[in-house]
Amino acid sequence: MSDKTIARVELWIWILLYGGLLALVFGLAVERRDFPLGWSIVVGGGIAAATGIFLIFLRSRMKTDNRQRT
């Protein structure tokens, strides 16, 4: 894998993981006022966070390109 691809995957890991957790907490707060809306935000945030965790697993399996560049 190229360095650019790995950097892009690492960027998406952070975005999905922290954005998903933030949406999950926000959905729990909204759930007190509007249950269906809050629940849908919680589910969306959970899916985003789970995708970030899955990308961490994929990143651990990626091989870096260790060739010397001239």
Rank of each mutant, 00 (worst) to 15 (best):
S60C: 02
K63Q: 02
I41K: 03
G38T: 09
G46H: 06
R59A: 10
L55T: 05
G52S: 03
G20Q: 06
T64Y: 00
F26E: 10
L28D: 12
G44D: 12
I47D: 04
S60M: 02
S60K: 09
N66L: 01
T64W: 00
Y18S: 13
M1I: 05
G52H: 02
R59G: 01
T5Y: 05
I15V: 15
F35P: 07
G46V: 10
S60L: 05
M62G: 02
L55W: 04
G52F: 01
A23Y: 04
T51W: 10
T51F: 14
N66I: 01
G46Y: 05
E31K: 14
G27W: 12
I6V: 10
K63M: 01
R59F: 04
L11S: 10
I15P: 06
L11T: 12
T5K: 10
V25P: 06
T51L: 15
G38C: 12
R59S: 03
V30L: 15
T70L: 00
Y18G: 07
L22P: 04
F57H: 08
A29N: 11
D3N: 04
P36V: 13
E10L: 10
G27V: 09
A29Q: 15
I6R: 07
S40K: 12
D3E: 11
F35V: 11
D34G: 04
S40Q: 15
L11R: 09
